[in-house]
Structures are given as structure tokens and as C-alpha cells.
Amino acid sequence: MADVSSSTNTTPTTTVRPGRFKEFWRYFRENRGAVIGFYVFIFFLIVAIFAPLISPFEPSTQNRGATLVPPAWQDGGSWTYPLGTDPLGRDMLSRLIYGARYSFLVGTIVVILAATGGILTGLIAGFAPRWLDTIIMRIMDIILSIPSLLLALVLVAILGPSLLNAMIAIAIVLQPHYVRLTRAAVMTELSKDYVVSARVAGAKLPRLMFVTVLPNCLAPIIVQAALSFSNAILDVAALGFLGMGAQPPTPEWGTMLAESREFILRAWWVVTFPGVAILTTVLAINLMGDGLRDALDPKLKRS
């Protein structure tokens, strides 16, 4: 091994070698897209939190005298409704602002549900005897063989269409990815010396699972969390669009699109803005996810 990377790796840590978090931050910072994504994400988060303060109208206030008003910069638009109004005379901007709340709610809850369930199952599968591992992984294969949106649709159809049921359905659909990821990470870690030495030192199984192994499997899981956050937003919007998610008049972005479908050729703004909102949010989160992956995955680093 006479290459350069090996010589940097064998460097003792006594000198100015950057620390682990600092190094992560430096790589993350270097990725301009990730930083932009991070700021956009924070912006949407603030909008979501302070929605009642920011939005000019209540999201469900209807003004029958001002239906389908175009955005302010177009002929016939006014600054009362900066982004125009929908077919029921509701202010688009206010509805979009409130919609951000639903997207974040959905993303957070789905990720928490899917990640906890998936990580636990994955840990069990990784540590379990072979037969149990096989059974768990077969079940995950089965869930994965059904297209995610279809499975979610069927689940919601049976549970009854509502935002909560949509979130549960999507959490179930996303969960196998965490199981596979966690199990694979546990498998690689289990063969390493530090786990063996912890075992020899007499660590009990729960300690081995949660204290010794789990922290070392977190990098891919964090990246997956970012990805499933954006997936959750997309899928809930898709369910809403199909009428199986949040129900009108909830200002959820996908539901808003579904309500305005028939007006697409007459009023472009009722269709364009909710879509732009979904795309920007999802894009921002995916940019962050990519940045996280590059920063956490040493294989893709420049040597």
C-alpha cells in the first residue's frame, strides 16, 4: 500500500487532523446543493410553524365574489391575493402556507413510524437465529413486491380515506427499506472485531444491539430517513391527489391539485403552485439527503 490515502490514514491524531463531526460538516458544506437544500428546508419549516401569523387569510375562507382570480402580476390579478384564488375563492397563498404544515407533519410522523419499526425489526433480524431472520426478510420481500403506492391505496381504502390512515399506510410501505438497511449494516458490523470483543467481555444482548452495534449502523439509516421523508411527502400528496389522503377542504398540496384538476386549461395557477410547492420541498430534502450521503459515506469522498 504505497498510495496516498493510506499515508493520510495512518497519521496519528495528535496534530491538526480535523475531528469527525467537523470533517462531516466540511464535506457537507462543500456540497453547495446540500446547503441550499438545507436553507430551503429551514425556510419551509419556519413557514409551516408560523403559518397562522404569515398567511393573509384563513385557508378555508371562501370569497364567492373572487373565484379563480389570477396571480397579482397577471391581468385581472390583485395584491389582495398575490398568488390568485382557487375555484371557491380561497386564497392560494394562504392555502399553500398551511399546506406546508401538513407536509412536514406527514414527513415527520411517517419517518418516525417507519424508522422505529424498521430499525427494531432489522436489529432483530440481524441478531436472530437464521430461521427467524429468513422469515422476517421473506415478509419484507413480499411487502416490497407490491408497488408501494398500490399497497398504500389498498390499505387506505380498507382503513377509510383520511390523512392519518394515509400516513400509517405509507409508514408500513416504507418500513421494509429500513429493515433491509439495518439488517445489512448489522451483519457487516457483527463480523468486526469490536463486536466480538464486546461479546467476549460479556455484554448482554440488548446492550450489544443498542449500545455496541446500532450507533455504528446509523449513517445509512440517517440517509434513508431523509429519503423517506421526501418519499412520504410525495406519496401522501399522490394519495391526496387520488382522493385517498387528506380530504377536502384540508389545504394539503396533493388534495389541492386534485380539487383543481378540471381547471387546468383555464387557470394554470391553481395547478402550478401546489405542484411547485411539492417539488421544491421534496427537492430540498433530496438535496440534503445527497449531501448527507456524500458526507457520511467515506467511499465517495475525494482521496
Binding site: M1, A2, D3, V4, S6, S7, T10, R302, S303
Partner: peptide, 22 residues
């Protein structure tokens, strides 16, 4: 001759034009 990290291979790779763009 030299230990790991003494730049033996790198000088040869440089001559062959096989080093990365960095």
C-alpha cells in the same frame, strides 16, 4: 525501496499518466 506511503508507486503512476485528476 521504501515503507508504505513513501511515494514509490505514485512516481511510477505519474510517469504512466495513471494518476487521478487531483
Amino acid at each position: 525501496v521504501g515503507e508504505s506511503g513513501s511515494g514509490k508507486s505514485v512516481s511510477m503512476l505519474a510517469m504512466m499518466g495513471l494518476l487521478p485528476w487531483t
